[in-house]
Nucleic acid binder design. Structure first.
Lengths: 122, 122
DNA sequence: ATGGATGGTGATAAAATTATCACTAAGTGA
DNA sequence: TCACTTAGTGATAATTTTATCACCATCCAT
């Protein structure tokens, strides 16, 4: 993690939410965990494009922010699970709502971006 | 804007949504516009901490992504308004849900971050 | 003792986002 | 002409986020 220079605005719900969950992978991670994929190794396989190292950091942040809790099982081979806390679970309706909105907007975005690319708008 | 190197996964709703709305200010901007604050100048005043230049870029992206539409009134002094499109409006329930979640989580996050800061966890 | 499986870290590079500053343009009224 | 308002842009710096690579530790089986 890094040393944030610009402080969070705790009075703005959107600012708080963005801090905790506003990153490339966190929603995906919470989503997969809610589906029962809880081990780092399995999460790496389940989430398209993420690497072990990045996943590790995201899990750590989610844990520090109180959305996940980590359990270590002294089994062979070593097993670690990340489970949703109460706060984490309270986010699930949002995660699925955002996912659904994104799915609905997907084809439209694709069209828009392709059109703009050919028109050199960006 | 910049040239994205890692492509969007159009099959993942969360990925699509993050692309369009996953940034520091966009939810705030949509929120303010939904409350009736539509002119760049007024948005700068309404949104704590944003600068004119940054707002301008965010508005442009939201417009390109089809969430806002821009109207230029030939008045004196010059008046420009950004209004929500149908897609933009379809996001409002999410914006307010996220805002509410963030408000509910705010004090908890503050406690967590302050505790961890003193414990050098970060 | 060696190697595989799992979970994890440190250092650093690359990419992406946001901030800053100085500027342009149109219109209007003093 | 000059100042003022509003909207907007270009160049660049600073910050933040993600990615890459090489590495460590444990436990176990061969």
């Amino acid at each position: 993690m890094y040393q944030r220079k610009i402080p969070i605005d705790y009075d703005c719900g959107l600012s708080v939410a963005m801090e905790v969950v506003g990153s490339k992978w966190k929603f995906c991670i919470l989503d997969e965990i809610s589906k029962g994929i809880k081990r780092p190794k399995d999460l790496v396989n389940a989430i398209n494009g993420i690497t072990k190292r990045v996943l590790q950091k995201q899990l750590r942040e989610l844990e520090l922010h109180g959305l996940l809790e980590k359990t270590i099982y002294t089994e062979i081979p070593l097993r670690v699970e990340y489970n949703l806390t109460v706060s984490g679970k309270s986010l699930l309706p949002l995660v699925s709502a955002i996912d659904q909105w994104g799915m609905g907007f997907s084809s439209r975005l694709k069209t828009i971006l392709e059109t703009e690319a050919t028109m050199n708008y960006l």
